[in-house]
């Protein structure tokens, strides 16, 4: 019986740690230049997902391939407009970690509301925490299996 209480306590503490510990995997010092060429056309961005690390200097060259399109970065509150033949450049420092939505800032046609993308700044902590918790749960199942079962010493 005592064993089970101890197991519960250890597992619980580990779970709390995994879920809430302030891991700071990437100190904001990378300062790498990241240059993307993003084509905007046919109501989509290509590439639609941009990965950078916190602190990177990001440059996005937006190239419109059919009609005028824009690019608005949620959370950073930045935007540019590009005309066909006239690419526009957006430069900023990715100083806020997280995942931010990119969307077209110009009403460009019927499917304009669906013209979106993502800017991912930093490793996805949430994902790693999730995986950690799942592993813990698995471990829990192994160690805390129904107390009725005989445990062989």
């Amino acid at each position: 019986m005592k064993r089970i209480v101890v197991s519960w306590a250890v597992l619980g503490a580990a779970a709390l740690l995994v879920a809430f510990a302030p891991f700071n995997l990437q100190p904001v010092t990378s300062n790498v230049e990241r240059i993307f060429r993003v084509e905007a056309g046919d109501f989509a961005y290509s590439p639609a997902v941009l990965h950078v690390n916190p602190g990177d200097n990001v440059t996005i060259k937006l190239v419109a391939t059919d009609v005028v399109h824009g690019l608005y970065v949620d959370g950073y509150d930045l935007s540019v407009i590009a005309e066909p033949g006239q690419p526009a450049v957006l430069s900023f420092t990715a100083d806020r970690p997280g995942t931010f939505r990119l969307r077209c800032s110009v009403t460009c046609g019927a499917l304009h509301p669906f013209m979106t993308g993502k800017l991912k700044v930093g490793t996805n902590l949430l994902l790693w925490r999730g995986i950690g918790l799942a592993l813990l749960a698995f471990l829990g199942i192994l160690t805390l299996r129904s107390p009725g079962l005989p445990i062989v010493h």
Partner: peptide
């Protein structure tokens, strides 16, 4: 030129502007 012509004639003048497909 950038504003009015490059979409058809191309940014570098090569006649290959992004718009020629259309």
């Amino acid at each position: 030129y950038a504003r009015n012509c490059a979409a058809c004639h191309g940014e570098s003048g090569g006649g290959d502007g992004v718009f020629i497909g259309g």
